[in-house]
Design a protein around this nucleic acid. Sequence first.
DNA 1: CGCACGGTTGACACGACTCAATTGCTGTGG
DNA 2: CCACAGCAATTGAGTCGTGTCAACCGTGCG
Lengths: 275, 275
Amino acid sequence: MQSGFAFSKLADRLASLIELSSADVDLLAGMPSTITHHASHDIVVRAGDRIPYCCLLLQGYLCWRSVDASDGQIISVHVPGDVPDLHTFQKLSSSAHLCTLGPAVIAQVPHVFLQEASKASPSMSQALHMLMLAETSALRNWVINLGSRDALTRVAHLVCEIAVRLRAVGLARDLRFSSPFTQADLGSACGISPVHANRVVQELRRKGLLQWESRNITITDWKALVHLAQFRHDYLWLREPAAVLPQHLNARQAHLDLAVAPERRMHPQNGTAAT
Amino acid sequence: MQSGFAFSKLADRLASLIELSSADVDLLAGMPSTITHHASHDIVVRAGDRIPYCCLLLQGYLCWRSVDASDGQIISVHVPGDVPDLHTFQKLSSSAHLCTLGPAVIAQVPHVFLQEASKASPSMSQALHMLMLAETSALRNWVINLGSRDALTRVAHLVCEIAVRLRAVGLARDLRFSSPFTQADLGSACGISPVHANRVVQELRRKGLLQWESRNITITDWKALVHLAQFRHDYLWLREPAAVLPQHLNARQAHLDLAVAPERRMHPQNGTAAT
DNA sequence: CGCACGGTTGACACGACTCAATTGCTGTGG
DNA sequence: CCACAGCAATTGAGTCGTGTCAACCGTGCG
């Protein structure tokens, strides 16, 4: 893995939120980092630990999970380009574990660098701030999800969110992405039991919305999935709608929709989103 | 109420998180603000609105609630001293409504002032940052609550959290506080139906944990309530354990806190919340 | 080869939702 | 002063979603 890789992941992610000047990119290019590899379901940062760096996720998935039970509740899920522990960079430790879901590659970025960069460039400071705010916003949305939707909708929503976040950093362009999550993980994330998670996945498959096999998810009916999940991407604060929705690039996707499930293609005739 | 003292509410709240210098307090004393009064279940800031000030809650309760349905999911609850929309002060609007729960008094604090203050004093900047982080931490905890606990425990947890947060700013010293929440509100906050919220409240009463009548809550068995809710105050990041727990628990608790981690409280729970 | 793990399935229990009706309270107008 | 409306709290009955338990299967790996 080349050394330039790490900073560009972060640059891409920040650029998905806010316009970066070339000076900012140059600043990021000087980012020091230590690359680490982690196995599946590994604890990357243990609850309560204080470390002098932040974790920039390069490949795979990370999540925060509560320490509580054997298989703690998953609090948030992160995709490449995210810095899940950005909020610890001021000084604090967290009361949850930062864990991998599936194998992952991480760049450890010293707090010092982030502080210096923030100090050096107001726009960089703002970009990092936005990154934190965006994760908080996703968290709020997750509260809504857990508090007001049923199991099927929650899972659909999670899949939508992951897909969109992956697309925002240039992954999952064809709505296909790896899913190293076990069904137990899925359950922990959505607040349902593993057994029920299984049934929900089957239901999504049965409805023709997605395929989920051998650690891969392929969304086969994006519009229907979004509709079922009542998913709106706006809370992610991504700048580029084109990167968000498979609108135009999906002439192929569109006819795929038609081919797979024509009758399910109920879309709002007008602007107002129907329930 | 002495409306000239809006700043002191904020100062108290910030001081509950981090030590403020007298210079910082002086800075806050110059805080301009417009005091507004609101009726129960009023929308203070509508979703999508961009306003040039933050809302410092002086009296009553505020909450974020999603726009979705008729009676949207409550995302977070706020007590006096909080600035629920602090995260919008960079530039962004929110996609949820900021609403009152019961009548409330608010001080509108111009973004400009907060920006200047942050610029003028690093510790002030850090304090405001901590305030945001603390709210995010509470949000994370709420995800755990919704995702992994049953209705009874969720409600108990909410009551514990509100009590502790009130105590941190000098209210509810005797574990008694006003609760203008309707049972429908309670349901929206905990992700349960209003009818079930009622049954849960009755159950808590029946167990002798609290009284809840005529818009007032009195916690009658704090230890049992904390135990039932598996509540730990540490995620609120309050500096002063004495403000957190009722007296009879404080002796050993405070001792533990100081002994283990004076800066950041990540204590191994043994006394209060043993399962 | 056999074990462990993740996925799958069925039966059953229970928590929570919905519907619907009643009570009690508070404010308002006749 | 009472009648009434409106709102919140309460209650009961029936249903449904989800959890739990327990088993079984397929696969990968030691």
